[in-house]
Design a protein around this nucleic acid. Structure first.
Lengths: 250, 250
DNA sequence: GCTCATTTGTTCGTATGTATC
DNA sequence: TGATACATACGAACAAATGAG
């Protein structure tokens, strides 16, 4: 049990409450990969004994982490590490609707190719790695009823994702990229940022989407983060919006 | 005190916990406008006496509503109704950035005009009112350093916002629309949905934004909701994205 | 500037109920 | 069935912030 430390770590005289100190200790073990997604953390009673605090204080620390999405609890079983914390909803990056009351479309993924490329600006700057660090480039098309709707290009640091190009490409069809990355590399997605714009597609995007270069498309830039605000993926995407529009909810 | 009811309302034998029953009673008073935004709710001790439950149970009910954003507490003062529940961040609809690490731009608002218009499809359908119900139409331009960046057209039911057109238009310059609506009509914004697309601007939008009709712009449709999932505003907006892009975070 | 009543925040602990395996 | 683990409910004591006087 990684949390079993000397209880001297928790001090009632500290400027922050005891439950908060405990919370941070557990969170640190999660972020450092000592507690992996799916792992069970010590029981309430074990934490009570380890740290010499009351059950109420332990409960408060754990429930805060549950509220924040880092843990989940099952009565009778235990308390477990969540892994990907982001609301599942918002991880479905592309949700196509033609109206507020319309049906959501199911997108299927078609990997186009993965290859090694040299680092470049601005990708490497956004990914917070040196400009000479090489990247993986993953191109995909998302289909809506057999017709292309989104064309995306992802960049991932080679140093972080060794042997990613050996990963069978059928896997990329079956599950979202963030799920594959969490499973294979233990990198959960905690947060992402997005820039949205409108533009005319370049030659490659127009061909991939099957639209004329004169048709405006949505342009999305995305940056995905794991623990400690570490960016791990930089993505550019072009999305057709003739009838369908991309949907977001807050 | 609206919550002071007969304690028979709270039953330990119920299928749901006592703290949850209390939570729902308070929430109902908020949604029904008995407890208005900014109002102080009864103190912990008052609730303990009114309902004959323990202080711990009262605390749990209140803290849950705090977590959900309906209440906030100030030590030494009391517990208050939040009003607008949506994360403040996401209420700033338009956040313009040119890069992930760029500075955010400050937008100023310029009201163009407000007038009464007959209802129309799809606005009235989205607003869940009869097709013959009239609307207010509010046009605004959002400026970034004196140059137009966003042109928006809002539609609000006249039945919900009586005398909105008498509202001094300088007020619309000073505060966001949702803030004005919460203050003047007691309608807090709980949620909103957005559709995002790309298009070429029509004549009016192109002129308002000062761009050629051949330049792709971001097209946003927005629906704002108050309590009970009641829509109160339908908005269409055109946003220039030549250098700057709209920024979203999840 | 100080005191005091009020109100929330933190910590303690016990007892019992319920879900899991 | 029993052991384990979380969920609910109870309540006491003290700390810290607020505002009125």
């Amino acid at each position: 049990m990684s949390q079993i430390r000397h209880s001297a770590k928790l001090r009632a005289s500290a400027p922050v409450p005891i439950y908060y100190q405990l919370q941070e200790l557990i969170l640190k073990d999660i972020e450092n990969g000592i507690l992996l997604p799916g792992a069970m953390i010590p029981t309430e009673q074990q934490l009570v004994r380890s740290y010499g605090v009351s059950i109420g204080t332990v409960k408060k620390a754990i429930l805060n982490l549950v509220h924040q999405g880092y843990l989940y609890r099952i009565q009778g079983k235990g308390t477990f590490v969540t892994g990907t914390t982001l609301r599942r909803e918002s991880l479905r990056y592309y949700r196509l609707l033609d109206n507020f009351d319309g049906q959501e479309c199911n997108l299927s993924v078609k990997p186009i190719g993965i290859r090694k490329v040299p680092g470049f600006v601005p990708a490497n700057r956004f990914l917070e790695i040196r400009a000479d660090q090489p990247l993986f480039e993953l191109k995909r098309v998302f289909l809506m009823d057999e017709t292309p709707a989104v064309f995306s290009i992802s960049y991932l640091p080679q140093s972080l994702f060794k042997k990613l190009s050996d990963y069978p490409s059928v896997e990329f069809e079956k599950k979202p990229l963030y799920a594959a990355i969490e499973e294979k590399y233990g990198i959960p997605t905690i947060r992402n940022r997005e820039l949205i714009g409108a533009c005319l597609p370049d030659t490659e995007a127009a061909r991939a989407l099957g639209v004329p270069k004169s048709q405006p498309v949505l342009y999305l830039e995305m940056l995905a983060f794991t623990y400690r605000n570490r960016p791990y993926e930089y993505r550019r995407a072009y999305c057709i919006t003739n009838a369908k529009k991309v949907f977001r909810e807050y």
